[in-house]
Amino acid sequence: MQANIHPYSRIFFLITGIAGGAFCTNNFLLLAFWLLVLLPLMMITGNGKAHFSFLLVVVLPMSAMLLFLSWIVWDKSTADFGNVLLTILKMIVYTTIVQVVLIIPSSQVYTTFKKWGMKGDMLVTSLGSYIVWVDIVNRSDKILTARFARGFIPARTFITRLKQLPHLLIPLIVGIIRTATERSESWQQKKVLYRIEVMKASEIKYNAFINAGMITAGAAWLLLNICLRWK
């Protein structure tokens, strides 16, 4: 199941979530917000798997390194692990908020950006930047496959792929520049910039319950942290 989130709910949740996090100095509250609000939201929107792999591959090693480094720097008896934990939890909360807001299903990207008030050059740039990662991965894969086929790479392990970096870089960037010029000519001929500007946003059915929940949770999170800060 994938719940549709309204663009305004996304932006409201982003602002209240990050502002609330900035005021928060309580580790337990941050953990509770992540467990009770952010994690269910990631699951409901169908991004649970992506979130867990992000936690496992990025956040966990980074947190371990932060804890380890802090342990080395400070005297073990006076080490301020509470503060390090606060940094780690804030990092998790901020990143998850951004993930909830910015992981948008491809069918809704155009409508969401339009509703956020983007138009003209900004809209085109944002749409392009949004899909660039897939484009770059595909290109790199093609270059590596070509080198593999020609016998330059003995095995497709991580290390051998890494050794290919210098050989990958130049064809990748030359390809990018060539694509940019070709794409630009094609856009001029097809009047893509004008078409994007006047294209009608598609009608999407938003889930009222999820959207109301997001707005309520965001507002409550911000108010709670403001109240606790100036209690």
Partner: peptide, 21 residues
């Protein structure tokens, strides 16, 4: 107009260079 389309087509791809490396 040509410069504008070229710039707009190039920006996302240049972002990709930063991301990849």
């Amino acid at each position: 107009y040509a410069n504008k389309t070229l710039t707009l087509a190039f920006i996302p791809l240049a972002v990709g260079i930063n991301l990849g490396i």
